[in-house]
């Protein structure tokens, strides 16, 4: 009962900090998912729909990146964006942008691999049909994107789930700066470190509620799209 009270207090109470943390979390996850999808889905279609030399190698490479530990991605981006790193002059370390970059690195391979798998199974039939009606080359991309729009939404949603739940990389490159880069997961970690398990659990449940809400909205969209 106390837990429900504290969740309610967190969400609708007088302290604006949690709402601010939620806003940063959503901003980060939405941008991460957007960019990862913009890169990952076309790349996945190209990889899945075509036969070319080096395809097995490229597929293996994407699958390997799928196993990239978040902390390794975080470390990489940290070293790149640090003032003493090659991209230091952009002043991006400990910003939401840095978190988005690290997450794009993590989620793009995931989205590409899922897309390539999905498209690859049906590629032969679709390609034959498209060639049959005189559509060649890069123009096919549009038809693949249209054809798979419903399952693509699920893939994007899975990417969003990864993004919002990730903690290792965003802690490293975001730095958990209050009012700036503190997101739900790093806030939960901080509260746990301080031994405030109640508060940490309340934050955790809130995170799940938000995920549920986003899923519900997107499923509604998915349904509308497939009913078209």
């Amino acid at each position: 009962m106390e837990l429900i009270n504290s969740i309610f207090e967190l969400l609708f109470g007088t302290d604006p900090e949690l709402r601010q943390i939620i806003a940063v979390t959503l901003r980060m996850s939405l941008f991460s998912t957007l960019f990862s999808s913009l890169i990952g889905i076309p790349a996945g279609v190209l990889l899945g729909a075509n036969d070319f030399r080096g395809k097995p190698f490229l597929t293996r490479l994407v699958n390997t990146l799928l196993g990239l530990p978040p902390v390794v991605a975080g470390l990489l981006v940290l070293l790149l964006l640090s003032r003493s790193g090659p991209l230091g002059s952009f002043r991006l370390l400990y910003t939401v942008e840095a978190m988005v970059i690290a997450q794009v690195l993590l989620i793009t391979p995931f989205i590409s691999a899922m897309t390539a798998n999905l498209v690859g199974v049906n590629a032969k039939v679709i390609n034959e049909t498209l060639v049959g009606v005189g559509i060649h080359g890069p123009k096919r991309l549009k038809y693949f994107l249209l054809d798979f729009r419903v399952p693509f939404i699920s893939i994007i949603l899975a990417g969003f789930g990864r993004s919002i739940a990730e903690v290792g990389a965003v802690q490293m490159v975001g730095g958990n700066v209050q009012f700036k880069t503190r997101v739900m997961t790093t806030a939960i970690m901080m509260q746990t470190n301080m031994g405030r398990f109640d508060f940490a659990i309340a934050l955790g449940v809130t995170l799940l509620l938000i995920s549920f809400l986003v899923n519900s909205i997107v499923n509604r969209i998915q349904k509308a799209v497939s009913d078209d």
Binding site: F31, F35, L38, I39, F90, L92, T95, V96, E97, V100, I101, V104
Partner: peptide, 10 residues
């Protein structure tokens, strides 16, 4: 395109 978009956020 992706890099351009990324830098726009930054």
């Amino acid at each position: 395109i992706s890099i351009l978009l990324l830098s726009a956020v930054g």
